[in-house]
Design a protein around this nucleic acid. Structure first.
Lengths: 333, 333
DNA sequence: CTGAAAGCGCTTACAG
DNA sequence: CTGAAAGCGCTTACAG
């Protein structure tokens, strides 16, 4: 059973394909098609359940009403929540989202950009990784709206929406210091992306500002994408080797691994040992005691991204690039 | 800057579009194109960075190498993990996945099916809801492979992959009973989908088999999609109103809400009060004490789905439908 | 008020 | 060994 085409409808209605097309696209009035014809054709469309072939439409018009969302890993709750929010908001404006994970793999990211490009995606929302600058530049050359989020690629001139990780991290460390902590560790990830580096910089700056010596041995950089068992081993090692009274985890999954370690070695979070996580996780609040964390305002980030995209899509001229930095909140529990 | 087309390549290589097309599609040998021409054209393609327009290809061939994945909610970790696994596995076979959430909204689900259909998606993986039977039947009429997962729609003749929720739920309750529990509650969701109903049936059957009276007041059916604060209120209410020594939560987010209640009312999980959750969640293991749960074998489910899809895609004839029920595991912690 | 025709970028049956 | 041409299902400039 083949799907109906515009030809079938034109045939049934005894009008030309052109007329049907105008009616479908709401240009009937403008093209002064008679009301009688409009009604007749619309009725036939409804009765037959005809849906225009978007592929053909897309090939012809070059756009798709689809926004491509490229993220690191959909199974990370930070991304899946953002994805869901963006999806909801875009849907209300008549745009669909298709998304896919890069797994921090340059080749896969490039593949995805090409996939989306070859599908005539109207705009791109990308949580980028180093190594895809050129590919993104190609999109920009084609005048496609591109919004980077979560991470910036400073060498590109485009839009960016992200949280202020430097300030958030600084603030977290500052709160440790004000609680009298001296041996403050940072468990972060060994990956050269801006938003991770900022967290490290904020950590260091706070220590320096408060005249606490920076001990690089208190900074644990976990290799990216390594199995969690190894991460747990390394964190356990850190906790054993050094005297630590506070620790900031730079991502939610690192914090989860850290909490598992604490459970294994039977170390409690209390007045002698403070923990702050990153990017909330249900386990944080539920944990006994509840774990403080740095929260990115997901709703606001999603809203801002969609607003930027829609503005650009509705504007015929290229809008100036915007770099929007949204404060992250330290939630003390 | 417009993208290159096959015409541009043909022009540069001084051959026909046909020849270029054959070479791109690996039919050069079969069409006995000379090695010299093949080499020349391939070099030009590489040098110019030409990528065939998939939209045009899709319009012509009717397929896309894309599999559509329709789930309830990407921000639920059960779905986001499955999505990620399916994505990985499909990617290795040269298929891309595009996914989107239905939010248990019939209209949105229909929209998505139409979206995917109009994008010539090659196959569908759907976690279905009641009310979209007809839409799925239309896909089947068009001979598109459809795999339902997580939930079945028994009235449809198609493939299904899911866990045995009846058995899993039965087993959970049985384990409570063997611990000597008598007042066993079930917190479930008020939604008419098979995999949720099965959990209820398993609960009831186990009680009956062990001659424990079924008290409907111990079964709390939470309205779907209600704000979590209300859910928490209702669970709190249940815990207060009834004497309960064990509770099975029918989904992971209900269990999370339940754990929050326990924390609020300062009730401990111990030998007097047992809890089993559903669909693992990091917070379960991390919780003090760790929370037992019914685990669906995500890896196996994803693997099975992809295998079914690929089989169907590579077979010219319609394969017999398969209903694959995978046992869920009770993880006692 | 409406239609014939070109063209979007491909694939493929057919011809030579 | 290779190419001209039809056609996938649309949109739209042009003509009447």
């Amino acid at each position: 059973m083949k799907a109906l085409s515009i030809k079938d409808i034109a045939l049934k209605a005894n009008v030309s394909i052109t007329t049907v097309s105008f009616i479908i696209n709401g240009k009937a009035k403008e093209k002064s098609i008679s009301d009688a014809v409009i009604k007749k054709v619309q009725q036939i469309i409804i009765d037959s359940g005809y849906k225009p072939n978007q592929i053909a439409r897309s090939l012809r018009t070059g756009n798709s009403h689809i926004i491509g969302l490229i993220i690191e890993d959909i199974s990370n709750s930070f991304f899946s929540r953002i994805a869901r929010l963006i999806e909801d908001k875009a849907y209300k404006k008549g745009y669909k989202i298709i998304y896919s994970s890069t797994e921090n793999n340059v080749e896969k990211a490039q593949d995805l950009i090409n996939l989306f490009k070859s599908r005539n995606v109207d705009a791109y929302i990308i949580s980028p990784i180093k190594g895809i600058e050129e590919d993104i530049q190609l999109l920009l050359n084609e005048n496609k709206p591109v919004i980077l989020f979560d991470r910036n690629l400073p060498e590109l001139n485009t839009n960016y929406v992200g949280a202020n990780h430097f300030a958030a991290s600084y603030q977290a460390i500052e709160s440790f210091i004000k609680q009298g902590k001296k041996n403050i560790a940072l468990v972060t990830i060994d990956i050269d992306v801006q938003q991770i580096i900022e967290r490290y910089e904020g950590y260091k700056k706070a220590l320096i500002d408060y005249a606490i010596p920076v001990d690089e041995e208190l900074v644990l950089k976990i290799p990216f994408n390594q199995p969690e068992v190894d991460t747990i081993k390394q964190i356990k090692q850190l906790f054993k080797a050094k005297k630590i009274d506070a620790v900031l985890f730079a991502t939610n999954y690192l914090a989860i691994s850290g909490l598992k370690v604490l459970k294994q070695i039977n170390k409690k979070i209390d007045e002698h040992f403070a923990v702050i996580g990153y990017d909330d996780h249900e386990a944080f609040e539920l944990h006994t005691p509840s774990v403080s964390t740095i929260q990115q305002p997901l709703e606001e980030i999603a809203e801002t991204i969609i607003k930027l995209i829609l503005n650009q899509l509705s504007s015929k001229t290229k809008l100036p690039d915007q770099q929007i930095i949204i404060p992250a909140k330290l939630i003390l529990r």
